[in-house]
Amino acid sequence: MELVEAIILAVLAASTPLLIAATGELVTERSGVLNLGVEGMMIVGAACGFAGAWLTGSILIGALFGIVAGTMMSLIFALMALGLAVNQVATGLALTILGVGLSGLIGAGFVGERITPAVHLFIPGLTDIPLVGRVLFGEDGFVYVSIALVVGVWWFLYRTRAGLVLRACGDNHVSAHALGYPVLRIRTFAVMFGGACAGLAGAYLPLAYTPFFIPGMTAGRGWIALALVVFSSWRPGRLVVGAYLFGAVTILQLHAQGWGVGIPSQFMSALPYLATVIVLVLLSRARSGGSTAPAALGTVFVPDR
């Protein structure tokens, strides 16, 4: 029983950064913008988040540093892809290349340092319940924030007028523009939200997942988050399922290595990446009837004045 609880806790911890980053990217993509720079924004968020927490001793300030760093990275993207109408795929790649370099530069001084990781919730009586107590009432703050974030995004997209307008921009920017909505401004906010989430997701890694910073510690999670958005058919509810499934695959391979299954560890480590490829293929195939992607996703929009 303790093992089951430990596994669920580990899955939640591994899923949370994926869920946060993917939720942000989902909003960005729903507005019609494909920002492939999630990995770059995450890794800068990780470096700045750790720097903030190490300098101030506060996990909260560290998380804020991560959010601000991710947002600033996303503003570079917005300036290029929205302001200057540059190809979004190429800009996103550039953002990732820049992010990897910047995070190395920022984090260089912090390699080998340790911080006290984020505290876990403890409510006497509730957290002690066997099996479910620690899962429901004993997580760190990031886990609860990630759940609130998905619910909030779902409510925003489907229950508010602003969410409807944002989705309209993503499906048909010409019509949205003709109706008088400021397409580029709305998209800029969506890109910034995506950046803030990616920065927070990156900061989660050194602040709660491991209490130290290592260069390249995001290890492709930003790219997996991008794949998760495709997996979710751009719906927040399915994103939760996808993120936890991927977290489970990650933990499964870690445990399998621990159990001494006779498979080389490198093959197990490759599992999450292979799973991403397989899932993308299966989903795209199942959807051959029609795409569920926002219709204007990734296309350049230059308003005629």
Partner: peptide
């Protein structure tokens, strides 16, 4: 299958 070549090529 129409799977995004960007993501699959990167995962590999």
């Amino acid at each position: 299958f129409g799977a995004s070549e960007i993501l699959t090529s990167l995962m590999l």
